[in-house]
């Protein structure tokens, strides 16, 4: 089975984000970048399928600047077989739509049975690229999956996704695209040996010209959306400790939840 995993490098969730003065982008100095946590589930699932059914190949696909190589290498060290790095200054500024288009163009020339993505990038939390990519490729997609089983002939997949009050179980033919949610698996960590073997794996660089994409189709010119402004969430206020006898303090708690927090 040929599996493609689309991954993204994102600012570490622990990073303290500062917004660039008077702009709609963030201060990148001092920010650490990591493999998008939801993409780890996608990589792990691909590797598990390969280990289970054998005779498979896991290819990683990522668009990003030079530093994105580190995220790609993390996947190769986990056990992915090869990678394509979409790198071009013209790609910069692409929104979810333009990104999906670039990925779709790339996948047109690649054989695949299964495409896995994280359910969303933790940087912009858009959750768009997976589904729009599937639409552009004209293949089925199921988002936010927490379980993936293949039929005996590996031609179909059965997916679980958590919905309110239950689990939705969906069957689909392959090729298809799924976006992965926490709970799907426990991603492995790269081992030292894995890191060494990743050195020898192929990372093919592809630019806009190779994909036959023009300047107008990609980057901010090709984007359908525009970030108007960025602002930080309001600072969290300190907690409140309600002292006193349980009976009274609970009454006070209920009053505060009702009158101050207005949540009950």
């Amino acid at each position: 089975m040929k599996i493609v995993v689309c991954i993204k490098q994102v600012p570490d969730t622990a990073a303290i984000i500062k917004i660039k003065q008077g702009s709609s982008s963030i201060e990148t100095e001092g920010v650490q970048y990591v493999l998008n946590p939801y993409d780890e589930y996608a990589v792990e699932e691909a590797l598990r399928i390969k280990e289970k059914i054998g005779d498979s190949e896991v290819a990683v696909l990522s668009m990003g600047q030079n530093r994105t190589k580190d995220a790609i290498k993390t996947c190769l060290a986990m056990g992915a077989d090869k990678a394509i790095h979409l790198i071009d200054d013209l790609f910069e500024g692409s929104d979810s739509y333009a990104t999906s288009l670039i990925l779709a163009k790339t996948l047109r020339d690649i054989e695949y049975d299964l495409i896995l993505c994280g359910k969303q990038g933790v940087d912009d939390d858009a959750a768009q690229v997976g589904p729009s990519l599937a639409e552009m490729l004209n293949i089925p997609h199921v988002s936010v999956i927490t379980r993936l089983d293949l039929s005996d002939d590996n031609k179909k997949a059965i997916l679980h996704r958590e919905v309110e009050d239950g689990t939705e179980i969906i069957e689909t033919s392959l090729p298809a695209l799924f976006t992965c949610q926490k709970g799907l698996n426990e991603p492995r960590l790269p081992s030292l040996k894995g890191i060494m073997s990743a050195k020898k794996k192929e990372i093919r660089e592809v630019n806009s010209e190779a994909l036959g994409l023009s300047r107008e189709e990609i980057g901010s010119a090709g984007s359908k959306t525009e970030v108007a402004a960025l602002s930080l969430p309001p600072q969290r206020k300190g907690g409140k400790i309600i002292k006193g006898e349980p009976q009274e303090s609970i009454r006070e708690l209920v009053r505060l939840l009702r009158e101050e927090a207005k949540i009950i």
Partner: peptide, 24 residues
């Protein structure tokens, strides 16, 4: 920096072979 991790992995495994399967 990933390059440094690769270098470290190589040197580390050479000196302490038993860590080759160690997970980072």
């Amino acid at each position: 920096d990933w390059d440094s991790l690769e270098i470290l992995a190589e040197k580390g495994i050479h000196r302490i072979p038993a860590i080759k399967d160690a997970k980072i």
